[in-house]
Design a protein around this nucleic acid. Structure first.
Lengths: 192, 192
DNA sequence: CGCGACGTTGATTTGCCTCAACGATTGTGG
DNA sequence: CCACAATCGTTGAGGCAAATCAACGTCGCG
């Protein structure tokens, strides 16, 4: 149940068995059905979660009702609306399951207790946030400088195992283009 | 010399005078002339810096030689290439002074010593990275969903004191549009 | 003064959107 | 298990946002 999380953490810091036990204690397992929401726009996000199984989209709706996907989270990813979580303000994002999923949930208060009790955890989340930030910075540069064709290929290449589980519509909402145009990109790429 | 930094830190954590003294010790003052580089693409970034005076751009050059500005940093901002800094790999970014500037520099090794000696510093930089990440996430959403006109206005509104010190060309490189188009946006906005 | 960086404007082109129609696939209730 | 609805994918026509290219005026600075 917690093996995947243990491996995930080991990528960033070393915890012995006892430390991991203390770390894992405040987490609760939850199952989420496809199309269910973990968070809806306007709610305050008071959790962080690790995806054990399944897939989620974290997205924003603009004034016209168009979706922008901030990120997808499949196995081995963490999900939260970091803005709402930190400031405890109403979320501008929604989080929805794209498949029947299983997650490990921790509440904000419990996470802060972990920070206090285990300095290593402070370090762990600092490193995780830094890595996420680096990835977003790269995506920002790509979005500013590359065409939709290039970004589509880039996305397939970087997240092949996630991309294969997504619809064109979902990928389009990540790239910031219409799904019709994604369809045309695929056609162009297929015979070339 | 270090007053601005002291205030900057106080926004995120509380340090007493002794703690601040220990914190500030590894920092060195440096002056950087306009157009000088703090970091060039391909170099490894082994510093982090706090801007006391002046202004910098952190940017990437794409294959065609077009600039994308990742962010501007004026007084009270921190600068580093976080990717290169963390992984100690060649930087894909450059950092250049846009004005004669003064900064407080800390080397990577010294920063890591601070993390070890002062757990509060670990927390400080975790919070700072989180805030930066939230801002970048918002910018990502805007870039995906809004027109250049809207993003131009948004930029002026969010960073008025920085925007007024920048050329059209620099703002264009931040928005991801041509500088000619920024000129046309300004014209349109001026008589409306 | 003269040069280089910046800003403006117009003509043309291109990337991508919008709308609409239709086929394919998936899901669901009877 | 099938029928039918809903969702998804494809394709085309037309339009708009923004790029590109080119020309020219302005400003600051060595």
């Amino acid at each position: 149940m917690t093996d995947l999380l243990k491996k995930n953490i080991a990528l960033n810091i070393a915890l012995n068995d006892d430390e991991f036990k203390r770390f894992i204690k405040p987490f609760r397992v939850a199952t989420v059905q496809k199309k269910e929401y973990l968070l809806r726009e306007g709610e305050v996000c008071n959790f962080e979660a690790f995806v054990n199984k399944g897939c989620f989209k974290v997205y924003h709706l603009d004034d016209k009702g168009v979706e922008q996907v901030v990120y997808f989270a499949a196995e081995n990813w963490w999900i939260t609306d970091i803005d709402s979580f930190i400031h405890q303000t109403p979320s501008q994002l929604s989080i929805q399951a794209l498949e029947n999923s299983e997650i490990l949930l921790i509440q904000k208060a419990d996470k802060e207790k972990l920070y206090e009790d285990m300095p290593k955890v402070e370090k762990l989340f600092r490193i995780m946030t830094q890595k996420t930030h680096v990835a977003l910075q790269r995506r920002m540069i790509d979005t500013l400088s590359k065409t939709a064709d290039q970004r589509y290929l880039e996305f397939l290449h970087r997240y092949p195992e996630i991309a294969s589980r997504l619809t064109n519509i979902q990928i389009a909402a990540y790239l910031g283009v219409s799904h019709e145009f994604v369809s045309k990109i695929r056609k162009k790429l297929s015979h070339s």
